[in-house]
Each structure stands twice: as C-alpha cells, then as structure tokens.
Design a protein around this nucleic acid. Structure first.
Length: 374
RNA sequence: GGGUGGAUGGCAGAGUGGUCAAAUGCAUCAGACUGUAAAUCUGACAGCUUCGGCUUACGUGGGUUCAAAUCCCUCUCCGCCCA
C-alpha cells in the first residue's frame, strides 16, 4: 500500500492519520483553545447545521469567518449537516423532512424552519470559512432495507454532484483560486458492499479532494464491519485522503486506520469525558517499542487501553493520576481523588480535565499510528 | 399554664381507611454514550427470596376495623398563638 503521509490544506500540511474533536457549536465544550492545543490537537470540526442556526451563516461571514470568531488558527473542517439529516429527521420525522431538493429542518432551538440544500450547505461552509468541507449527504439508519440504502446512495451522489458544481462556482465568486478549501464527498450504502462500491465509484467520477465513510460502521449487533470498511477504502483513489466520519472509539479508529482510513472525528473523547469516562493506556511503552500490532488479538486492539468511570466511589481516595505515563495537564497536576471530588460536586473543572485528558489520549493514539508508517 | 398545628424512607416532601414497601426531587450506587437536540440519558436504591412471594416499616405505646401512614387514646419531641 502506498498511502499518503500528509493532507495538504490551505493552512498547512497535516500528518496522517489525524483525529479532530468535534467543536460542533464552535467550541470543544468546556475547553480553551490553549487547552485543546496543549492536548496535541491541531484540527477541529465544526457543524454547518448548528452554526447556521446560531449564530448564523451571514453573521459568521460578517464576523470575518470562524477562525477569527473563535480565535482558532488551525485547520477547521466543517461538517455539512448531513448527519443532522439523519439524526434529526430520519430518526424523528417531526423535526423535518428530506426531499430531492434538500432537507427541511425544524430548528431544535426555537422550532423555526430552515432549508438546507446541497448548494446552500456549500455556500454556508464558505461563509463559515471552512478549510475542509463536506458535501451534504443522506445517511440512513443502519437497519434500513437495501432499497432505502440504495435510494440514499443515489441521492447522496446527486447531491454530491450539486455540491461540487456549487463549490466551483463559489471559488470563482469569492476569488479563492489560490486558497481553495478541500471538498470531501461521503460514501453511503450501509452494510451493502455493492452499494458502497457503486457510491464510491460514482463519487470518484465526479472528483473530490477526499472521500468519507458515512453512516454507521458497526452493524445492528454492534459488530465492526471490517469488510465494508476495507472494501470502501479500496474503492477510493490511493492518493486521496479518506475520512472516517464520526469514528470512533480508539479500537475502531485503529481498525479503520489499518483498513485504509486516514482522518477521524468523534464526540467520544469530549462527551464521554464530560460524562466521567477516562481513557488510559495499559502498556504504552511496549506499544511504542514493539508497534501497535503486537497487542492485536482477533483483529481487536482493545487490550491496548481501558476506561474508568472517574465518578465511581472507588476513586474517592485514589491519589494517583488517571495515567502515570500521560503528559496532559490533568495527569501532571491532579489525582483521581480530586477529579472524583469535582465530578461529585459537579464542578465543571472535572469535566474539563477529563476532556483534556481524553483528547491527549486520542492525539497520542494517532501519534502511535503514525509510527506504523515508518 | 391554656389552645393549636405537626412528626413519613439518608435529606426534602406527597399521601389522609384497602389498588402503599409509600409519589416526586435531591443524595447515593452502577451503567450507557461513535460526522454532539447529550455538563445527558438509563437502571438500582428496607431486608430476604426457589422471583411466586415473605418479613419488618410512616415519632412511642395501646386501641377501633376484615383492613391503619391514614380513625381514637397515651406519651415524647418540634413549631405557632394566648397568658
């Protein structure tokens, strides 16, 4: 395999693989930019749907773009709102409807109606000031029938084409020829290999800067879909970055990486941290020395790490850090006992430190994966 | 001293004859979380159990009743009013 080693963006190169935490509403909940950077994270994801509702696309444009607005200098990927088509509409029809033209959303903030077409999704991402854009796609629940997934694939392809046309139009309109953002398309098709391959093939024909894996990557039994993930990656050009959207837990990221996926984003480190779950390494020194595959067992890398719920009573008098080997601010300064206390009294510093630590865990994870290339 | 209201599970607080091992909230103990409607949600929370039940429970002790947290009496404690 001759996979790429870096992703070129208008704000510089990013080593592959990399992980982006989700700053959905222009914030990694609870953290300052310095804390994010100090956790080894240089790229983040923001969300088109949530930002168009508040503070609004036009507002962000007038504010000078998302980078200036949130004071983040690194590359920013904008998710298109495609996932919200799924989570807010396909999972709850009261919150909107999807037609061929686009997705009609009811704002989760005030009930007002908003229309997101493929063209508008792209235009808003330009307004936001995105460095890496994602086409509007149409993901469906994983348990959907073949027919439903097939329909989603056709629509995703048609929408991707419209996005591409709009993208080129906006580049000219905004004179961005020398500082183009990247545009990613998203492969759908659920658990059906032929749909995934067809979708990939059609998207590649249109031509994008990178390609994403959309929809769920685990089946209805919670089983990781190795074949689908591997075959989808193989159906995409070797020289293009491959973005596994929304993935995932550390084990899933590692497996996806070995199947050809390069970039990841997920709410897990931030959300689960906020909820008290802490990731920690079991045998980091040996992993670094012997390579990550040394720990592999039946395709799994679960023994690499473990989690603890820091709110549990057993940590009340544990005066050691989350992880002795970790160099994050939380581990350098605080004990489990203290963080346990912060969670117990609902002091937000607890959630903040848990998030800082989990982000460092994730950045360390991709650093370990980069060693595999050499 | 006289009158009056009250005492419910770790806490707060519903219930005022049977459907009450007792609403609800908090606290406690666990669990979940995968392109964030999530600082959220779920479950457990008297004891025992062969999971059908059983035992002990609504300040104390007695009583009425087929049946009492709920009605009556005694006592203890707390609040309020009058002297």
């Amino acid at each position: 395999m001759n996979r790429i080693k870096k992703l070129k963006t208008r704000l510089g190169d990013i080593k592959i693989p990399f992980f982006m935490p989700d700053a959905t509403r222009a914030s990694i909940r609870g953290l300052t930019n310095n804390q994010i950077l100090a956790s080894g994270i240089s790229e983040i994801v923001v969300n088109t749907y949530h930002l168009m509702l508040k503070p609004g696309a036009n507002f962000l444009k007038n504010a000078g773009g998302i980078h200036r607005f949130m004071s983040w200098d690194g590359p920013i990927l904008t998710d298109s709102g495609g996932y919200q088509v799924y989570s807010l509409i396909h999972k709850n029809s009261k919150l909107g409807e999807v037609t061929e033209d686009g997705a009609r959303f009811r704002s989760v903030l005030d009930g007002s109606w908003h229309f997101l077409t493929p063209e508008k999704a792209i235009e808003i991402q330009f307004d936001i000031g995105s460095d890496m854009m994602v086409v509007l796609d149409d993901p469906r629940p994983p348990e959907s029938s073949f027919e439903i997934q097939e329909e989603a694939v056709y629509r995703t392809i048609r929408w991707a084409r419209r996005c591409k046309v709009e993208f080129d139009k906006q580049i000219k309109k905004r004179n961005l020829q020398n500082k183009e953002p990247l545009l990613f398309a998203v492969v759908q098709g659920g658990k059906h290999i032929d749909l995934r391959e067809y979708c990939a093939e059609q998207l590649v024909k249109i031509g994008f800067d990178g390609y994403g894996f959309g929809g769920r990557h685990i089946d209805e039994n919670g089983e990781f879909m190795d074949e689908i993930i591997k075959i989808t990656a193989n159906a995409l050009p070797e020289d293009k970055p491959k973005f596994a959207l929304g993935i995932g837990n550390p084990n899933d990221i590692i497996r996806c990486y070995f199947h050809g996926w390069d970039m990841f984003d997920c709410v897990i480190p931030s959300r689960e941290g906020r909820h008290g779950r802490i990731f920690f390494w079991n045998d980091l020194e040996n992993i670094k020395k012997k390579g990550i595959k040394y720990i592999e067992k039946n395709g799994d890398y679960k023994s690499l790490y473990d989690t603890m719920n820091i709110g549990n009573a057993k940590f009340k008098e544990d005066f050691t850090p989350f992880c002795e080997k970790c160099d994050c601010y939380a581990c350098k300064n605080y004990t489990k006992s203290y963080i346990n206390h912060l969670f117990s009294v609902k002091e937000s510093l607890g959630a903040q430190m848990a998030t800082v630590h989990n982000l460092r865990f994730y950045s360390e994870l991709v650093e370990i994966l980069r060693l595999e290339q050499n």
